[in-house]
Design a protein around this nucleic acid. Sequence first.
DNA 1: GAGTTTGAAACT
DNA 2: CAGTTTCAAACTC
Length: 591
Amino acid sequence: MGESEGSEFPPKKQQQSETADFPAKKLARQLDFTQGVLPDHPQSQLSPVVVKPLSAQCQLQPHPQPQPQVVSILVSPQQQTQQQPAVRVVKPESPKSRPRPNAELKDGTPKKQKQCNCKHSRCLKLYCECFASGTYCDGCNCVNCYNNVENEAARREAVEATLERNPNAFRPKIASSPHGARDSREETGEGLVFVKHNKGCHCKKSGCLKKYCECFQANILCSENCKCMDCKNFEGSEERQALFHGDHGNNMAYIQQAANAAITGAIGSSGYASLPVSRKRKGQELFFGKTVKDPSSHRLGHFQQASHIRHAALSSLLPSNPVARAGNTTTLGSSKITYRSLLADIIQSQDLKELCSVLVVLSGEVAKTLSDQRNSTKKRVEDQRDTFPDSSTQERLQSQKEFDADKIVSNRSSANHADEGAPDDCSLDGADMSKGRPMSPGTLALMCNEQDTIFMAAASPNGLMGYGCNSSSQLPCGQGMTEAHAEQERIVLMKFRDCLNRLITFGEIKETKCSSLARTELGNEKGPPSKGIANTRTGTGSQQGPFSNGVVKAPPAAKPPQMVTSIVATSSSDLQKFPSLPQNGDNKLKS
DNA sequence: GAGTTTGAAACT
DNA sequence: CAGTTTCAAACTC
């Protein structure tokens, strides 16, 4: 009733002529809004992902491709007739992370768009979810809707009014904490992300455990921003845990799927939606200080806590970079689902460099060995030609030469396997990389074309490819050079494959641990809930993670850097078989 | 589906 | 800023 129905929204025909007088600044701001791209609103570029309520969040949702989406409001006027629920076009994406609880179906399938049911607000106030989310009403069940193209003037004015009341009205309510305050943080599949409700809720009766509560709705814990009463939406809350763990089975499957996805990379960014885990308890934890609390690290988030600390170093190769994505994911609000590969912690950018160095060195060494081999063979042939000038002997010598070349390959392969010792390597080696396997003309042509530009260029800084060049210079491109590079490529690829295999193995180990952890955690939480500092983990302790509990056989090197080092170290040991291998590279790997 | 409850938004 | 009203979603029956 408080809204003067008539005066506040003049007839649309009139209004549309008024809009031209907006100050430029205001107009620009409105344009931001009307285009669905709000300033500082990164999540507007992400696909809609739905935050499920705690009870429903146990299923792994298919992750929409995070392809950027222009969220300009494009609903055509023809489709925007008021009160036309029958017409249902795809609504532009919400630029706002305002909780959109109905944005999905019960089975977890994302729904296109929330349909509002406004009756008295004309869909021009924040009461209206469509309006609040910066979208036109489309196919809604609203009455007397002005949130459409036909009433753009009125709508714009309403936007203006709303922004004057609250400049952040259309900004995400749920956003990452700019300073990464540890309170109210959320552990996601991607490591810890600091999220909180910007304004906080003010719930009184719901205990912040119903969707009336915006925090709960957004699947975050209440934070110090909240002014709620009798809040139960904090880490360690019995009520909350009871709610959350209503369905262990799904949760477990969820975690398992997540781990599998991370390992197999079946999902692009691989991973899983953020579990409703660990955040901070507003009251008690603030009382005890922020560094100690975080019993958070409870549940799935255990092993991800370390990654949270180190995530800044993750390379772009990794499926998800928490740092890069934190802004997006955390401001998603309703679409706050994050993904992270289980391998994310394992590889650091420096490790990739090391691996590349190893491969380059290995390549150079192969080239050198080949070159030496050919030189010796050639010399032998020449010597023998002088002794046995007959053609049959020449053929035999040629065969000998080819045999020698093959022998090099064979030696390399066996050397690779000799010191790897990893059982998981056995199945893949050798067979599919058959030595002496003829290369297709296309491959040969490719090698001839690329060798000087890519492959050799990569190694040339070390001067290692000089061997290959020397070798090549002695033989026609189609033969010696090609063979040399084929061999180099083969060895390098094999080694790279071996590294990948090892990486997979580590990932599998990690998966196993995660699964066991999840089981353990779920089992433990059936018992007395952790509250306050009782189960507080220290920051350093959490680094160690739950893997030290012996539940799962720990890998030889549990820490990511060590993992990678050991992965690459295989190459290092291989390189030792080459007497002329530069020591620095070896030492580097071993260090 | 109707009625009730709830808390954010709007208003005073 | 606090209190009240309005509003629409969430919830209950």
